[in-house]
Amino acid sequence: MSLPILYSFRRCPYAMRARLAILAGGARVELREIVLRDKPAAMLAASPKGTVPVLVLPDGTVIDESLDIMRWAFADDDAGAPDLALIAANDGAFKHHLDRYKYADRHGGDPIEHRDAATRLLDPIETRLTGNRYLGGGCATITDLAIMPFVRQFAATDRHYFDALPLPALHTWLAAHLASDAFAAAMLRLPPWRPGDAPARFPSHKALDLVPPASG
């Protein structure tokens, strides 16, 4: 039986959270790493908007929104209902300011102004994590996996600045994710996919041994 096909780009935070959810939810896919400047025709035929991630199910159904892929991955797993308001703030205002901070040369404006605005949007996450290991309590859920890749990107833009922020719970939460076997498994390096390549199963059997499914 053929596996669902996931078109992905390793460093994209949207694709990253889809891969993390597939790992945590216990799903299996064929992973196709793409090059953004040379997107494969098969991916564009499935999803003409041309953004990753794109999941193509064996029956031809296409899921090309990262949160919908996460829901698909967790369909048979009690991972807790996602906090849609917190995710919306991440995907909306936080991502807006993050892009203008990290990629200031593309957007213009003052990157420090956008950095400071993004920093203020981390306060609700710090509040939620104070006294809790994860955003949903004691276990990682869709909400954690959806937001973490963007906080990681923010932190990596200026690590000295981020490390100096008075957000101890957020620092602990991010460090735990980045040190996890799940993150290492999700960030595997693959050569760009080409038609005719042997399928790359994700997660591999080794990753399945390392990464237990999340629970709510």
Rank of each mutant, 00 (worst) to 15 (best):
Leu3Val: 02
Phe9Lys: 08
Pro13Gln: 03
Ala15Ile: 10
Met16Glu: 01
Arg19Pro: 06
Ala21His: 04
Ile22Asp: 02
Arg32Asn: 09
Asp38Gln: 14
Ala41Phe: 10
Leu44Pro: 09
Leu55Gly: 12
Leu55Trp: 05
Leu55Glu: 05
Ile63Arg: 05
Met70Thr: 11
Phe74Arg: 02
Gly80Asp: 02
Ala81Gly: 13
Pro82Asn: 07
Ala85Met: 07
Leu86His: 00
Ala88Met: 11
Ala89His: 03
Tyr101Ala: 14
Tyr101Asn: 05
Ala104Asp: 01
Arg106Ser: 08
Arg106Gln: 08
Ile112Pro: 03
Glu113Leu: 12
Glu113Tyr: 13
Arg115Ser: 11
Ala117Gln: 12
Ala118Asp: 01
Ala118Met: 10
Leu121Ser: 03
Leu121Cys: 10
Arg128Trp: 00
Tyr134Gly: 09
Tyr134Arg: 11
Cys139Asp: 08
Thr141Ser: 15
Asp144His: 01
Met148Cys: 14
Gln153Ala: 09
Phe154Pro: 09
Asp158Glu: 13
Trp173Thr: 04
Trp173Arg: 09
Leu174Thr: 12
Ala175Glu: 14
Ala179Thr: 13
Asp181Phe: 10
Arg189Asp: 15
Leu190Arg: 04
Leu190Ser: 05
Pro191Val: 15
Pro191Asn: 04
Pro192Ala: 10
Arg194Cys: 06
Arg201Glu: 12
His205Tyr: 01
Asp209Ile: 06
Val211Cys: 13
Pro213Glu: 00
Pro213Cys: 12
Ala214Ile: 15
Ser215Arg: 13
Gly216Pro: 01
